[in-house]
Write a protein that binds this DNA or RNA. Structure first.
Lengths: 278, 278
DNA sequence: GGAATGAGTTCCAAATAATGAAACTCGGTT
DNA sequence: AACCGAGTTTCATTATTTGGAACTCATTCC
């Protein structure tokens, strides 16, 4: 029996330390100890020790000059493994590529994490790809194409939990800012099999998104094609819907025999994962 | 050549938990509990609790079907912040781009982490950039261009510590596999201001690398241009050395006024970092 | 000049959480 | 039916974490 305690706060010391890590990351910029203290539920001495521990573990980096903390590079190393093994990105890659080529528009691949949309891959039609500028980025679920596509296929108890965590901030006049409006939209997406973003997050930006569903109906992620109102109409995008759904289905198909792409256990020099790269 | 006993051992429960996380990541593939147990210094029950905690914190993901653990997606989210704030990548980006364009070869940007080379950015001359395929990847320090360039400028006590953690595995006949040979090479690099990889890590792959040094002489990272023996000779690469050094110096110059690119603190909706992206 | 403020750091007794040997469960084998 | 091995739970013991308060060391203010 697993504790279904969502937002599990009570994970002992480790949980609290990770909570501190999250808080630092949430700032989106280097933070001073005092700022962190203000926004944390921990007493000064306790917070201080956490920050110390995390820093000399490399999970936080400390700028001696400015006395600020930021998420540390050790995370980058760990995330590489996470991205390759626990995200849809590696198996979806060829299909994301193909969709980008076929549509000549920006393609996003996202998963749901902590009631937010987590972008795990992106193909940008024109400019050179900016690494990480996409993978790892988070966005709101209630007002993005991929977010709504995923929510639409969430079973009720979880859906409610996710909805309860949305901020319903009105980014644009088109943003759906009530639970009722959102639920209606989700029903439409469920019926249609794909959804749109009608400039709900950013003016001038529209998209079509399709859910990536496992054989058992579990939502794994979503894929979308994004454009601007200057270049395309919603109608244009709707024409692309079959392509988007096709990609989603193909990804879901491969996700079935996911994990253990190879179970080789080669003898490696002690230093860990060693891959060919200069 | 065995388990590098964590230098940071005295970090209490949190340190131990993060050690477990590292071990999972080091496998490079999903791991079963029993496998982890074999390679961990923790008793069964203790390891079990760590793995439980990490899993419901989202730092590990658990595959119910296969009963395996892998680094979790929460790491991807955290790493995004780390990469943007604590790595050289964002400030180096334009220079990495420029160097790639000027040389039409693959460019790598790396930092030193845990005595290993951590690639934080990459520009691939030909194929489309593969996200993360580079950022976050780690490699050996003693036999790569960037690794040696960084080691060459490490002050003695730290250098010894880093050398002691190298595995000195002979990837190719050209690999330097003794401390003496490596130290001689590092001296040459120090004198010259840049270094090579003469097929030491992978047959047919060569590179020139320059260190990125802060004003105070601290090593921040390294940048390299990589090619194949089929396309270029070491001599060709040496011609490129000034360009590589130039890029390194320009990056170092900007690294001075690093941090706080903006210290704006915009009012954000509750959901945390919200950036424009569909 | 010196008092007052504020950020960061250290102390330590009490409170709490981590530990790990052993026992247990469960699904599959022999 | 007994066995086995992987995974899970228990619980008394032990070690760590906790946090109020006091301290340091700058800077600012009067």
């Amino acid at each position: 029996m697993n504790r279904v305690d969502r937002e599990a706060k009570g994970d002992g010391t480790v949980g609290k330390a990770l909570d501190v890590l999250d808080r630092v990351a949430a700032f989106g910029r280097p933070v001073r100890f005092a700022e962190l203290l203000e926004t944390s539920p921990f007493p000064k001495a306790t917070l201080y020790r956490f920050v110390q521990t995390l820093t000399n573990q490399g999970m936080l980096s400390f700028d001696e000059e400015r006395h600020t903390y930021a998420p540390g590079i050790r995370l980058v190393r760990l995330a590489h493994a996470a991205w390759e093994q626990s995200s849809l990105a590696p198996i979806a890659r060829p299909h994301v590529d193909a969709l980008a080529r076929a549509t000549r528009e920006t393609v996003h691949l996202a998963q749901l994490d902590h009631a937010q949309v987590l972008y795990v891959d992106k193909r940008n039609a024109e400019e050179a790809v900016k690494m990480y500028s996409s993978a790892g980025k988070v966005g709101p679920a209630y007002c993005t194409g991929v977010g709504k596509a995923m929510m639409a296929f969430l079973p009720e108890p979880e859906l409610q939990a996710v909805i309860d965590q949305q901020s319903f901030h009105a980014f644009t006049p088109a943003t759906l800012i009530t639970e009722a409006a959102l639920r209606e939209e989700l029903a439409a997406i469920r019926a249609r099999g794909y959804g749109f973003d009608r400039e709900e997050h950013e003016a001038g930006i529209i998209c079509v998104a399709a859910p990536i569903l496992s054989a058992s109906g579990q939502i794994l992620g979503a894929i979308s094609v994004t454009s601007t109102t200057a270049r395309r109409t919603l109608n244009d995008l709707e024409q692309l819907a079959p392509k988007v759904r096709g990609a989603a289905e193909r990804i879901a198909g491969e996700a079935r025999h996911w994990r253990f792409p190879d179970k080789l256990k080669a003898d490696q020099p002690a230093t860990g994962t060693v891959q060919c790269q200069e």
